[in-house]
Simulated scan of single mutants.
Amino acid sequence: MSVYSQSNQSEDWPNLRKYADSNKLLPAKTIGEKRIVFMGNSITEFWKQIDSSFFANKSFVNRGISGQTSSQMLLRFRQDVIDIKPDVVVILAGINDIAENTGPISLEDILGNIISMCELAKTNKIKVVLSSVLPANKFLWRMNIKPAEKVIRLNDMIRSYAAKNNIVFLDYYSAMVDDQKGLGKEFSEDGVHPNLKGYKIMEPLVVKAISKALKHKN
């Protein structure tokens, strides 16, 4: 859940301010360097805090914002991805849409936002790693919502889109789901956000996916 205040949201709904200065301070890529941007929500943002050693790799740029939905990510995609000229973007989006953080939204519209980000990336010659949504069967901040089946359906839609469009699909879900269609207790304290053990499961998967994306011709 986001700590970004409602008053600030009304002034800067996609939270363009958060990384505006950091983007300007990014050094130019060195010869041969491959810059990777991680675009996402709290799962991405907290990754850098919980396992900072992973993001000690200067080529990895974390652009996660807690609480964000795919609609907000799409609005800041140009500033926080395209304009900093990465070679690959890793997109992890959708769980906060299912939680209705910015209001009800259909799975088709969530996918539409994700597709728009992919299309923007491809137009700007940025390769894409498209992540599955992590498993979840409850939201502590939205106990009335039962997300498990929607997560499965959205992941099927993301996987299908990736396959049809020659995009690398990164399956976190299968590696982390438990027998209740939730995030395994060993991987999370609240059923949504990974702990260090959870991120240690994700890290080799994303590194492999990035390597595969860099080898793609388109």
Rank of each mutant, 00 (worst) to 15 (best):
104 P>R: 13
72 Q>E: 08
89 V>H: 02
63 R>P: 02
113 N>P: 09
60 F>R: 00
102 T>R: 15
111 L>V: 08
97 D>H: 09
60 F>S: 02
80 D>S: 09
109 D>I: 15
97 D>P: 06
66 S>N: 12
67 G>Y: 08
73 M>E: 08
81 V>H: 04
90 V>A: 11
79 Q>M: 02
69 T>M: 05
55 F>P: 00
78 R>M: 15
72 Q>M: 08
61 V>E: 00
78 R>I: 15
97 D>C: 11
79 Q>H: 14
102 T>S: 12
88 V>T: 02
69 T>Y: 09
101 N>Y: 12
73 M>V: 07
81 V>D: 00
93 A>I: 04
110 I>S: 13
88 V>A: 05
110 I>C: 08
111 L>Y: 03
69 T>S: 12
69 T>Q: 09
84 I>G: 01
72 Q>N: 12
73 M>P: 07
59 S>R: 04
52 S>I: 01
86 P>H: 04
68 Q>M: 15
58 K>P: 10
96 N>G: 07
103 G>H: 06
87 D>G: 03
61 V>H: 01
112 G>Q: 11
92 L>S: 15
88 V>W: 00
68 Q>W: 09
60 F>A: 03
54 F>G: 02
61 V>S: 00
100 E>R: 08
107 L>R: 02
91 I>A: 13
81 V>L: 04
78 R>L: 15
59 S>T: 04
62 N>G: 06
67 G>P: 06
102 T>I: 06
63 R>G: 03
57 N>A: 01
64 G>P: 00
62 N>E: 03
77 F>M: 07
98 I>H: 07
71 S>D: 13
92 L>P: 10
91 I>S: 13
107 L>W: 09
87 D>T: 01
53 S>A: 12
75 L>W: 08
71 S>W: 10
92 L>A: 14
54 F>D: 01
55 F>H: 01
52 S>W: 00
56 A>E: 13
84 I>T: 10
107 L>G: 15
72 Q>W: 03
54 F>K: 00
71 S>T: 12
67 G>I: 11
105 I>T: 05
59 S>N: 09
90 V>C: 10
93 A>Y: 07
113 N>W: 10
82 I>S: 09
100 E>M: 08
68 Q>V: 07
78 R>D: 14
63 R>F: 08
55 F>C: 00
97 D>T: 04
